[in-house]
């Protein structure tokens, strides 16, 4: 009797520590944040002493030019970075999907940028962008061109931040799409080759459609991460010059630590979270729709044959 009881309890025993930690340190804080977003709260107060102000933080933010600017910068950054990285990463994967010596070494070298701390990535690029000792301006000068104000001019600063992110994260997309390519069914490729499809046609009509499910998940993961980028930009520009590179994460941390407006920072966090939830669900819905369509097509094809 006792043994049976113990057996029934085992799964819960195994799950309990993880559930406990995640409730205490993940779910509770998120709930707390939603509550805090309705308060006028500064860091020296206990949360009980903060005044309840309803939706005021949210409404104030909507008319706050700086917040809207950084919201827009965040969207722009994510869109630019993810689309360039997808094109480059998938392109490289298609190009390098060959039977060559040293492929594993190449892949190992490519994951290095992702493994290194974002702080350090920021550091390296800040050094390279340095106006006098950095390699870019040195090269430009020795070739007789004007030095470029990499980090001190608004639009150049945005471009610099984008370049650093592309360097760091294109390999992620490359590796995932390479894995997808190498797990494609050989029969489909062979059939295409026998039918006389050229390289380009193979890519457009066979490889890309077959890779689609993986590509969508990759895109989703990368997009989520692009909204989380913070350290690299913090080290490179700290959001400046002006607000040109101040993404939302950075603005949240500054609102909390410099302006000491915890309630407002929490409301901002909620806006960011809502944006991410919408994106994720849109992507999921699309993915499900595509899956349903391919299933239907497959069924139709089987019935037809």
């Amino acid at each position: 009797m006792q043994i049976a009881n113990a057996n029934r309890l085992t799964p819960y025993l195994f799950l309990a520590p993880a559930a406990l930690v995640m409730t205490v340190a993940l779910l509770y804080p998120i709930g707390y944040m939603i509550y805090a977003s309705f308060l006028d709260w500064n860091p020296s107060q206990r949360i009980g002493e903060a005044e309840f102000v309803g939706l005021r933080n949210y409404i104030n933010l909507l008319s706050d030019a700086a917040f809207l600017e950084s919201f827009f910068v965040t969207l722009k950054f994510a869109a630019v970075v993810v689309s360039i990285e997808m094109v480059l990463g998938v392109g490289l994967a298609l190009l390098l999907d060959r039977n060559i010596r040293g492929m594993s070494v190449l892949r190992t070298l490519f994951i290095l940028p992702m493994m290194i701390a974002p702080i350090v990535v920021g550091l390296m690029w800040r050094y390279m962008y340095h106006p006098s000792v950095g390699i870019f301006n040195r090269t430009l000068k020795s070739l007789g061109f004007e030095p470029i104000p990499w980090l001190s001019d608004g639009s150049w600063a945005f471009a610099s931040v984008v370049i650093a992110d592309i360097w760091q994260w294109t390999p992620f997309i490359f590796i995932l799409s390479l894995a997808a390519l190498q797990s494609l069914p050989q029969s489909a490729m062979e059939a295409a080759r026998i039918d006389g499809a050229t390289g380009w046609r193979q890519i457009v009509y066979i490889k890309l459609p077959l890779m689609m499910p993986v590509l969508i998940v990759t895109l989703l993961l990368r997009l989520i991460d692009a909204f989380k980028v913070l350290e690299v930009i913090l080290v490179l520009t700290n959001g400046g010059p002006g607000l040109s590179t101040e993404i939302l994460s950075l603005r949240i941390s500054r609102t909390a630590s410099e302006f000491r407006e915890l309630g407002e920072a929490a409301a901002m966090s909620n806006y960011l979270l809502i944006l991410l939830v919408i994106l994720t669900f849109a992507m999921f819905a699309y993915n499900k729709a595509v899956e349903a369509r391919t299933a239907r097509l497959r069924k139709a094809a089987q019935e037809g044959s």
Partner: peptide
């Protein structure tokens, strides 16, 4: 995975 560390900062 969607929750950015910045969101956890305040709470």
């Amino acid at each position: 995975r969607m929750v950015p560390p910045a969101v956890l900062l305040v709470p």
